[in-house]
Amino acid sequence: MFAPSGQVARMSRFANPNRFLRWSDRLVPWLATVTGVLFAVGLYWALVASPPDYQQGESVRIMYVHVPAAWMALFCYTAMAGAAAVGLIWKHPLADLIAKATAPIGAAFTLLALVTGALWGKPMWGTWWVWDARLTSVLVLFFLYLGYIALNSAFDEPGRGARASAILALVGLVNVPIIKFSVDWWYTLHQPASVIRLEGPAIHASMLWPLLLMAAAFTSYYFWVLAVRVRGEIMAHKIRALRLRQAYG
C-alpha cells in the first residue's frame, strides 16, 4: 500500500517534468500562433483557392480534412505506442504522460477520419460505410484508442495503469501497417495512397500543396494540444503527490 510514496519520490528524483513545464510554457504561445496561421491559410486554400477535381468536382474538398485526420490518427498511435514503450522499459515518467496525453488527441483524429470519410463516401461511392479492409482496420484503431484510455485510467495507482495500457498500445501497433497497406494487400472499396507511395504523388500540385498545408496545421495542432495536456498531467501528478504528503505526513 505504500507504493504511492514511491511515486512521490520518483517524481522528485526526475527533474524532467519540471524542465518540461519550463520550456513548454514558452513553446505553447508559439504553437498556438503557428497552428492558427496554418489553419487560416490552409482553410483558404482548401475551400476557396484550390481547384475542383476532374472526377469528383467540389466534393474533393473533404480530402483536405479527411486525409490529414487519417494521417494524424496513424501518427498519434505510433507516437503513443513509442512513448508507452519508453515509459515501460526505461520508466521515464514524462514518456508515460506523453503517451497518456496523446491518446484522446489520436482518438479525435480517428473519429474525424471516419466521419469525414463517410461524408465523402456517400456522394462518391454511393455509401456511408462498407466493411472493407481499410475502413474496418481504421474502426479497430478507434477502439484501440478507447481501450487504451479506459485501461490507463482503470487502476487506482497511475503506474499500473500506464504499464497495462502500454502493453495494449504495443499489441495494437500491428494494426498500423495493416491500415497503411490494406489498400495494396486486398481488394478494397477505398482507393490506394495518393501521396505517400513509391511512384511519387498522383495528385496535382494545385491540390497537393493545400493538402500539405492542412496536414501541417493538423500536426501543429497536435503538438499544441499535447503540450497543454502533458502540462495538465504533470499538474495532476503534483496535486496527487501533495495530497499524499499531507495524508502520510
Binding site: 468536382g57 466534393s59 474538398r61 473533404i62 466521419v115 469525414t116 465523402w120
Partner: peptide, 16 residues
C-alpha cells in the same frame, strides 16, 4: 452550394 456537394462538404468541415 459547392457544386451540389455543400451538404457533404460543410458538415465535414464543421464537424472537424
Amino acid at each position: 452550394e459547392m457544386g451540389g456537394y455543400g451538404r457533404f462538404v460543410w458538415p465535414a468541415f464543421a464537424f472537424t
